[in-house]
């Protein structure tokens, strides 16, 4: 498609229009404050400069933890802090029993696997072996009561959980089941969105995961009379277990 003639000419036409249009420079926007001098890239004001103006993410691990837990609470996510993985496994066991989970989906991750050793229900691994693309695989995930995943980072500034398709169970695990349970360690908490983006770029240098998603609270909608309802299409419940 993109090699066919109409496509090439569409591309050339649009780029020619763009170049012609930009021949006349536009004035800078009316700003409240004088912009900082340029520093790398095209941007006159590097995004990094905006850091002190955005909502606070905390300067110390303690502050970041406090802000994160506070934000997650406001977003109506459930937060559990546990001392170690054994305690996390006990917690997951208790939740699974109490909620009468029949089947939970998970992916292979050093933080996730220990939780499932004694879990009182069936488990469904979504990594590797899952018949990709087949309706059966989607149905299997759909039939699970909960999805358990690790994450790339937790962001205190916004109360977000950053998951990726590379290490957090693909695209479906964190959004198909009705409950998403995230297991993370306290040292995964970063202050800002910029920090989280920098972290995944270092971790996946050269090959970004095909999906990176900042999850900020359980799925929600306000489309009916602007009234908040949780669980619109994604998980109705977001449970965050922080170890350490």
């Amino acid at each position: 498609m993109s090699d066919s003639d109409p496509q090439r000419s569409a591309r050339d036409t649009i780029l020619a229009r763009v170049r012609e249009a930009l021949a006349v420079p536009a004035p800078l926007p009316h700003l409240a404050h004088a912009p900082a001098p340029p520093a790398g890239g095209l941007a006159i004001l590097p995004a990094e400069a905006a850091r002190p103006w955005l909502p606070d993410g905390g300067d110390t691990p303690e502050e970041r933890m406090r802000i994160l837990v506070d934000n997650l609470g406001k977003l109506r996510a459930v937060v559990h802090r546990v001392p170690d993985l054994t305690a996390a496994a006990e917690l997951v066991f208790a939740v699974a029993r109490q909620r009468d989970w029949k089947r939970v989906a998970y992916h292979d991750h050093p933080l996730v696997v220990p939780l499932l050793a004694g879990v009182p229900c069936a488990t469904h691994g979504v990594d590797g072996a899952a018949a990709h693309g087949a309706a059966a695989a989607k149905d299997a995930l759909e039939a699970c009561d909960a999805g358990i995943s690790a994450c790339e980072a937790l962001v205190s500034q916004t109360g977000s959980i950053l998951v990726s398709s590379a290490t957090c169970g693909g695209r479906g695990l964190s959004v198909v089941p009705h409950v998403h349970l995230v297991i993370a360690t306290a040292d995964q908490i970063v202050a800002t969105l910029a920090d989280a983006l920098a972290l995944v770029r270092r971790r996946h240098a050269g090959a970004l995961p095909s999906m990176l998603s900042f999850i900020t609270g359980p799925s929600r909608t306000g489309d009916i009379e602007r009234i908040l309802v949780l669980g619109a299409h994604g998980p109705r419940e977001l449970v965050v277990v922080i170890v350490g």
Binding site: S160, S210, M211, L212, F214
Partner: peptide
Amino acid sequence: QPLTCYNTLYAGPRR
């Protein structure tokens, strides 16, 4: 909202 519920970056199809 501080951030909408899902802000997702897609880089191509499944890898």
